[in-house]
Design a protein around this nucleic acid. Structure first.
Lengths: 199, 199
DNA sequence: GTCTATATTCCGATAGAC
DNA sequence: GTCTATCGGAATATAGAC
């Protein structure tokens, strides 16, 4: 597959996470790549097709991560932490979650994009709910509300946490990140177990 | 003060909450009002001045609500519930929170708007933290993390809850709303204790 | 297959009419 | 004081060159 196409997808995603879907143009992509904005239309005829492709890429990436973790035999606690680490990385890079970004603009998006977005959120919540349920049975987690409600709660905290961090400063997210685990973890919280984390 | 100006502020806010800051234009406002888009520029020379005014209005509205609740002697539990009811109303109207909406677009906003936004979030968190602290002392609330962290957690859940609800459907927010109180309330959850609420 | 020149529409904003 | 005619530029998108 074309390397130009890959690069456009990458830049487009970055722009959605930094400036928002309605805050960037094909110009923003093309100037970085040293081509004319119209060249982007060759790979993605419309902005909506680019947006939909970015969402599909995100879903695929998520599926690969989940599959990979299950192949490696990650327990539920470590799977949750790995998922949360994606948000720590975004916070370091001052990016927000694509769910929150497109959640703001959802009424201005085409049907295909809205459907992909919904599919993505539902997929993540299904996975999260399952992780929480199994982890609770194994007494890795504790919580009183339903696993599904707890999943929505955690995803909300992560999504808005990144948005708040961009307004208040990055430490705001660290507090959220820590609180999530403190709320539901049954054992200690030394997330990195020895290998001290960066930042 | 001019009624036209008031109407513009109202429509502008609604558009930020439904289409996002970069998703609406002066045209959207002027056509509804039956005037030309340039007329809006008379009241708000630039879109940024309109945005900043909308934020200031929001802050003022919040201050008035807090003052009002304290004058009426609301306890901490009822103050929190009143605050959360604002989000229930937004959910009913399929609007999101202005914090989440502008949090997405923050990198494309002028300095004055960014500062107003930050001021607003800080003000809300200060108030929420205080409510939580006092309420905990009175044993109206229970939570293990710090009051400040709990405040960030609750605000995040509310903000992203509305965004998720727009993607998944309104019932998603109801679950979040309920979970928040279930997490920290010491007594039962019959929110309205007799005096049945509107809607 | 890949990209540019160009068209069209819309946006935010100014100058000036009433 | 209030609003309109109009501008300059940017955004998305098409037609066609290489």
């Amino acid at each position: 597959m074309s390397v130009t196409r890959e690069k456009i997808l990458e830049l487009g995603e970055e722009l959605i996470l930094t400036k928002g879907y309605n805050g960037f143009s094909y110009q923003d992509i093309s100037t970085v790549m040293g081509i004319k904005n119209a060249a982007v239309h060759y790979y993605f005829p419309s902005k909506e097709t680019l947006g939909a492709s970015i969402l599909k890429t995100n879903i695929q990436r998520f599926e690969e991560m989940v599959e990979n973790m299950q192949n490696r035999g990650f327990d539920e606690r470590h799977q949750l932490e790995a998922f949360m680490k994606l948000y720590l990385k975004s916070n370091r890079e001052s990016k927000i979650c694509i769910i929150g970004s497109l959640g703001t603009d959802v009424n201005t998006l085409s049907e295909p994009m809205q459907q992909e977005l919904q599919k993505m959120v539902e997929r993540i919540l299904t996975w999260l709910t399952e992780i929480l349920e199994k982890g609770k049975q194994k007494e890795l987690f504790q919580f009183r509300i339903s696993a599904n409600d707890q999943a929505i709660q955690i995803l909300s905290s992560l999504v808005a946490g990144l948005q708040l961090a961009r307004i208040l400063g990055k430490q705001a997210f660290k507090s959220i990140h820590q609180s999530i685990l403190e709320e539901i973890a049954t054992s200690g919280l030394n997330t990195d177990e020895g290998k001290n984390s960066q930042s």
